[in-house]
Amino acid sequence: MNRSVATPWLLVAPGALLFTGLVLVPLVLTVVLSFLAYDHTTGIQDEWTVAHYVHVLTDGYYLAIFWRTLRLAALTTLICALIGAPEAYILSRMGKPWRSIFLLVIIGPLLVSVVVRAFGWSMLLGSTGLVNAALQAIGLGPVRLLYTETAIVIALVHVMLPFMVIPVWTALQKLDPMVEAAAWTLGASRFTALRRVVMPQVAMGLLSGSLIVFGLSASAFAIPGLLGGRRLKMAATLVYDEYMHELNWPLGAAIAILVLVANLVIMLAYNRAVEARARRTLG
């Protein structure tokens, strides 16, 4: 009797401890830190204040960076969806050996560090890089690519694509291929069958893919850091700079918390909107 009551608690204990130690405690400490006063000469004070939040939310410099973060993350998500969904569809319709090979090609880049890939892109996109050389050869260049938002989005899409392809592919795997064939035999063109029959089925996969890509893009650090340069900051690089260069930890903490809350709100709202529609039909 006693034992059976304790069992579930014992079973969740390792996970709960890990979660508490690695997520909850640092998060609470960050929240506490964000409300502590800071002085440039003496450092962190023992007083409570909301000044950091007010400062961040009223300063155009920070708001511009937040807006850029939101914009680039949304754009990355959109491009990933536009490329990833067809990619997953083609993948799911491939024959025996090719499917595994191309799945590996898609997942493969995950095995390489983001930093290495960001450096790779900076070499490709640099003023003497391959892309500019090619553009010059056909008389279109040189174009400034490195340290622009374009560079950040290109690299983010490259890194995030597997996170879109895999959930959509999983959703497609669950779909009976004969369902699409049934639509054709009822008179639907390939496009109509895709739009009316396949798309609604993979909506949930597309939703989870979008959430993952948006969340990871909005908090990306290495890519904006290396491809955006010193001036084009995004949320994560901004927090880093507050901590490491300005040494204003409370302000950095406030920014981090704001980004976290904004991210949460956007993702929850998006999830609810799409899921409500999907649940009505998919259950």
Binding site: M178, A183, L186, L282
Partner: peptide, 21 residues
């Protein structure tokens, strides 16, 4: 001829109903 032009009625072994309709 493409299947959508033949206009034949087909009942699949798995039924292949549209689950979201």
């Amino acid at each position: 001829e493409k299947p959508n032009r033949r206009g034949l009625g087909i009942v699949f072994q798995s039924y292949a109903l549209f689950p979201h309709m």
